[in-house]
């Protein structure tokens, strides 16, 4: 290993890499100096210190407070759109999203006040009254925790026909004519099945933006999908809603990896669920290293009845933070050919 950096200077401090840090080829970069300044704040009356630059959610986690999140993921840039992680900050008129609000010295934060609980419950009720959350166990756990009753907004309106939501025009006036006000509008619609690897069931989409981020700058840099439309008609879409097979999609499946509700699902899992054979309690999960190339991504192989049913990757794994490529994610069908 070289003693000098790329520009030839001798580094002042050469920190030894810890076991979790991948050893790069070539000279070691100078690791950024560890943040020395700590920020002191109060969360639910308890003092806590976090490094400068840390967010409020990190402060709550240091105190073992379980802050609910939907659109937040450690390996993605916070978009703070779901608003379930909001907390009450003394001096702030509105609640603030803990996933992205930076901690500042002297902040006084409440994570379980009446206002916080109301907003969290309302976020859950608004989503659950408009989106199918049946394959989102964590979401259902949050609903129990906050006592959410989405049914108080009325029975769900009839599902949209195929392509109907994709054809919505922004700003085009919803007078409410033509549908009964006694029903609650929802995003229910037919599943999009346009390839053999994964399905897009946007009736389960809570519009957390995670798939767009994973497809774009936060992981894959493919940009096959974006948020289109506006308001309640906003949706994840390819350009002009073309099938994935005509889009820029490279089938890395990183969108599936980050989807919190099962809206994006392996075709294998989707078909087994449809057939009634999907049974997670009968599945094993085994970590291994992807055999395809030298990057060395960790694969978690989900096996049911001696067959691989899907492959995920742990977000904590340091090589690609849970992101994979098409080979690691989907290149296991041949194993099942026995």
């Amino acid at each position: 290993m070289s003693e000098t950096t790329r520009n030839g200077a001798t580094p002042l401090v050469q920190l030894a890499p810890d076991a979790m840090t991948p050893i790069p080829r070539g000279p070691l970069p100078i690791l950024p100096s560890r943040p020395s300044k700590m920020i002191d704040l109060t969360v639910d009356g308890r003092a806590v210190s976090v490094p400068e630059g840390a967010t409020l959610i990190e402060a709550t986690r240091r105190l073992s407070i379980d802050t609910p999140t939907l659109c937040f993921l450690e390996n993605l840039t916070p978009v703070n759109v779901c608003r379930i992680c909001v907390v009450e900050l003394e001096g702030s008129r509105a609640l603030v999203p803990s996933c992205s609000r930076k901690a500042e010295a002297g902040m006084k934060v409440l994570t379980d006040s009446e206002r916080v609980r109301l907003s969290r419950r309302m976020v859950l009720e608004l989503l659950a009254s408009s989106v199918d959350v049946s394959t989102a166990p964590q979401f259902q756990e949050y609903m129990r925790r906050y006592g959410a009753h989405p049914e108080r907004f009325g029975a769900a309106a009839a599902p949209a026909n195929e392509g109907e939501r994709d054809a919505a025009v922004p700003g085009r006036h919803h007078t409410g004519h033509g549908h009964s006000a006694a029903t609650a509008a929802s995003v229910a619609q037919p599943v999009k099945v346009d390839n053999d690897l994964y399905v897009r069931d946007y009736g389960k989409c809570i519009l957390c933006y995670k798939c767009v981020e994973a497809c774009g700058e936060d992981a894959q840099n493919t940009f096959a999908i974006a948020v289109a439309g506006r308001g309640f008609d906003a949706r994840i879409s390819t350009e002009y809603n073309v099938p994935l097979t005509e889009s820029a999609c490279v089938y890395c499946g990183n969108c599936i990896g980050v989807c919190p509700t099962g809206a994006l699902m392996f075709k294998s899992e989707f078909d087994m669920r449809a057939a009634g054979t999907w049974n997670e309690t009968a599945q094993t999960q085994t970590n291994t290293i992807c055999p395809y190339c030298g990057v060395g991504c960790t694969l978690t192989v989900h096996v049911q009845a001696d067959k691989i049913v899907k492959v995920t990757s742990p977000m904590e794994q340091p090589v690609t933070n849970g992101h994979l490529c098409i080979k690691g994610r989907f290149g296991w069908e041949w194993v099942n050919q026995r």
Binding site: I84, F153, G176, A185, G231, F232
Partner: peptide, 20 residues
Amino acid sequence: RDESCGQCVPCRVGVVRQQE
């Protein structure tokens, strides 16, 4: 309802529920 951008949940769905 027509003019909400649709980004955050409380507004995107809230304005629809308010209208209903």
